[in-house]
Amino acid sequence: MRRLPIRPFAVLATVGTLVLTGCGTETGDPGDRPSSAGADRTIRAHKVMQLTQTHEETGMTLLEGPVFDEDGRLLVVDVTAPEGKPKVMRVNVSDKTFRAVRTQGQAAYTSAQFSPYDGRLYLTDFAHGEIVSLAPDGSDPRTFFSGEIDGARMNPDDLAFDRKGNLYVSDSRGLREGEARGRVVRIGRDGRTVTVLAKNLAAPNGISFDEDYQGLWFSELTENRVSYLRLDGEGRVTSSHTAIRVDGGIAQTDSIAVDANGNLYQGLHGRPAMAVFNRNGERLATVELRGRTEGLESATNVAITPGGTKAYMTVSGPGGGFLYTFDALAKGIRQSNGG
């Protein structure tokens, strides 16, 4: 197995070639919850199961986008899966089995979330600059959005929905060139009304509404910072600022999830760990993997059981793609379920 560096979610799809990036994840022991704000404790994540191995065709595997459907079943995407291999999987965590939901096409799906408007599963295709949707069972694929925005195609990475079903997307355009040309984009639920909310960003990656839908958190992978966009009732930006600077060392900021208490779960690219902050920017905990971590380089994202505290984290590297679990600091909500 050839060990390849996982670069920041840059996914290039050419005929038979995929080059991309990931994020990091750590682990510790469940139950070690911070007792006070600002206390950085370790939370241990335990291995649930292995889902994938490194694909010979693409040279890697990268799990992403964990999301629960309305029946409580967990879905996961594999960004680098070649055609014919599971690109979207439905996982039974109880008996540690999974089945393929979608295998067709050359897409590089980097995130997944169900729409509150039509109940369909939406996927970002980083490689082709598209957003597609599927029926909950994986059938009826449709292209929701494709094309240029202000003269440039997107590299859509993560997505979030507001209560009405409008999409908010992190566009990592410029990542491959190392240029700050990324954007945060709002796409109306009709797929036609498009607005750029922020631009000239350094590889925006994670994106999530806060717990009461007053604003958006988004991370910039190559600047190791999390910013906050305050929005009005129509999705317009009323203010913006850098909210958290992440001291990641060799690791970089990746996907974001938010729990019912407003805590941010920040994935780390380049280290198998996840940093947890409160809404005031205080670091509360670090999620680390229990046991041996050789061959694991990325903890891309997490889904917290809606209404519960059981969290499932996607972890990947040359050693394969795995699902880990830990106890979250608060209950799961829509903002901690996919994206």
Rank of each mutant, 00 (worst) to 15 (best):
V15Y: 11
P5H: 12
L329G: 04
M1Q: 11
R192N: 12
D40Y: 02
N261D: 15
D140Q: 11
G105W: 01
V196S: 08
I149K: 12
A328H: 05
P82A: 07
T25V: 01
Y265K: 03
G267L: 08
Q50L: 05
L75Q: 08
V77R: 02
L75W: 06
D118H: 05
R120H: 13
G248T: 10
V11S: 01
D140M: 05
R236C: 02
P204E: 05
N224W: 00
M89C: 03
V101P: 05
F68H: 05
Q104W: 04
P116Y: 14
D71L: 11
T193A: 13
R189G: 13
I187N: 13
A180N: 14
R186S: 15
S35A: 11
Y122W: 09
G138F: 03
G291Q: 06
G262S: 05
F322W: 14
G105S: 08
T309K: 14
E177D: 14
V315S: 09
D95Y: 00
K47R: 15
Q252E: 04
V185F: 06
G308H: 09
M49Q: 15
L229Q: 04
G38Y: 02
D140P: 00
I187P: 14
E64T: 11
E211W: 01
A180P: 11
R230P: 00
E56Y: 03
L62Q: 15
A251I: 00
T325N: 06
E220R: 01
F209S: 02
A328G: 09
T17S: 08
P8N: 15
L229R: 08
R90H: 02
D254S: 10
F209H: 05
P272V: 10
G319I: 05
L62G: 10
R271Y: 11
V315P: 10
G319H: 09
Q214W: 00
H241F: 10
T238R: 09
F144D: 13
G291F: 08
N200C: 00
R163W: 06
S139T: 12
E70I: 15
F326I: 07
D259E: 11
D125P: 04
D162M: 14
E83Y: 01
